[in-house]
Design a protein around this nucleic acid. Structure first.
Length: 104
DNA sequence: CCACTGACTAGAG
DNA sequence: TCTCTAGCCAGTG
């Protein structure tokens, strides 16, 4: 079973503590910037080894189907900052896999 | 094999 | 600022 979703799991599992990634971002890493839906589809069957709560939408809001309250609680427990709108502060907690934030 | 659906995203009206 | 559409991959009926 070597497909798109396997790469999704691999990347999602690499999300560090206190960081969040968007579906589109993961899709981009896999080489398919438009396959964000497939990423979400793969995450729908996310194994226990996948920190699904660290995967949010591009605007920082928690994806549907997921337990929003649980995800928010987990993220808050990891020190992830939230906006006044109740969305994750992507600008502050965005996971940069290939970027070292050299001079941000 | 064809059509629909899904935890999404970005652009256009 | 909100709503709608098109694109993507994989699975199910």
């Amino acid at each position: 079973m070597n497909g798109f979703f396997e790469g999704v799991y691999r990347i999602a599992a690499q999300i560090p503590w206190g960081r969040v990634a968007s579906y589109g971002q993961i899709a981009r890493m896999l080489g398919s910037p438009r396959s964000a839906r497939t990423v979400g589809w793969a995450m729908r069957r996310c194994p226990e080894e996948i920190p699904w709560h660290r995967v949010v939408k591009a605007d920082g809001s928690i994806a549907s189907g997921v337990l929003p309250d649980l995800a928010r609680d987990l993220l808050l427990g990891e020190g992830v900052t939230f906006l006044d709108d109740g969305r994750v502060d992507m600008e502050a907690c965005r996971w940069e896999p290939e970027q070292e934030k050299t001079d941000l």
